[in-house]
């Protein structure tokens, strides 16, 4: 893959030294540890995997994680594309502030996010929570809270993928579509969306991977109730702390597998000369 960028080639030994350093770095930091998780998950053959699949609480946790991740990704995609269009195509006061604010979820620790959400939506002492609760809608210690926390931490991923694509695209094609009679919705669906398709897909995949793996914020807002609000990442921690290392590794392996598979699938099907 790397060899395809032909020009500006470094000849001689330095080229191999650089490659070696990069490969060793990635091997010890990423490949080897992830491989060991997989190895440990299968240390007793398929025993560990069977163990978690037969445990209804863990199956519930996996289902919950997938449901939450899908809802969060849908929300983040719709709002992400909308906010990207707003940021790139329109001028308004406070635009730079909004852009900076969108990076907060990436820079703030997820556990802070969790605490912040509890402060607002907490059922007893929250700023808005009691009102919602009296209307019969529980946020914290329930699925909506987990979705909220997940949406928060994965918020910028779609936007950061789509904004550069939109900027490079320019608005001439959209103007051409308008002058040919297309309204705003037709222009978006027929011209803008196909042009930013790969940016959106990549953003979705990153969001999905991030949403499946979210731990800190979810731990605070979910309450971690077995069989109800415990997600897959919380199961990993719980099993690990309770010396059920096999179960922990097996669950961790499933989580990693889905995330890595998404990224691999997309980089394989993504057209080579996209940009």
């Amino acid at each position: 893959m790397a060899d395809r960028t032909a020009p500006a080639r470094t000849r001689g030994p330095s080229r191999y030294v650089i490659r070696l350093v990069v490969i060793a770095y990635l091997f010890f930091l990423v490949a080897w540890p992830v491989y060991l998780v997989g190895k440990n998950a299968f240390s007793d053959g398929f025993e560990n995997l069977r163990g978690i699949i037969e445990d209804p609480d863990i199956v519930h946790a996996l289902n919950l994680t997938i449901t939450v991740a899908i809802i969060a990704v849908v929300i983040n995609t719709v709002f992400g594309v909308g906010i990207s269009l707003l940021l790139v195509r329109y001028q308004f006061p406070g635009k730079r502030l909004l852009s900076a604010l969108l990076d907060v979820p990436l820079s703030v620790s997820p556990i802070v996010v969790g605490l912040a959400l509890v402060l607002v939506y907490g059922g007893r002492n929250g700023w808005f929570g009691p009102t919602l609760e009296s209307a019969g809608f529980q946020v914290i210690f329930a699925t909506p809270g987990i979705v909220l926390a997940t949406v928060f931490v994965a918020l910028p991923l779609v936007i950061r993928e789509v904004v550069p694509v939109l900027e490079e695209l320019g608005d001439e094609q959209e103007q051409a579509a308008r002058s040919l009679g297309a309204n705003a919705v037709q222009t978006f669906l027929r011209i803008t969306l196909p042009a930013i398709k790969w940016g959106v897909i990549y953003g979705v995949v990153l969001s999905l991977a991030r949403s499946l793996g979210e731990f800190g914020a979810v731990k605070v807002v979910s309450g971690n109730v077995l069989g109800e609000t415990r997600t897959a990442t919380l199961v990993v921690e719980e099993n690990y702390l309770n010396f059920d290392k096999g179960g922990a590794y097996a669950t961790a392996f499933l989580l990693a597998l889905v995330a890595v598979a998404c990224i691999i699938v997309v980089s394989v099907i993504r057209p080579k000369e996209d940009r």
């Binding site: 001439e172 094609q173 103007q175 051409a176 579509a177 308008r178 002058s179 040919l180 009679g181 297309a182 309204n183 011209i191 042009a195």
Partner: peptide, 18 residues
């Protein structure tokens, strides 16, 4: 609105739908 004016517009950089 531009889509209701029934004008044809040609841009310097073509604005081809890629």
């Amino acid at each position: 609105a531009p889509q209701k004016r029934n004008v044809g517009f040609v841009f310097q950089h073509y604005a081809a739908f890629k």
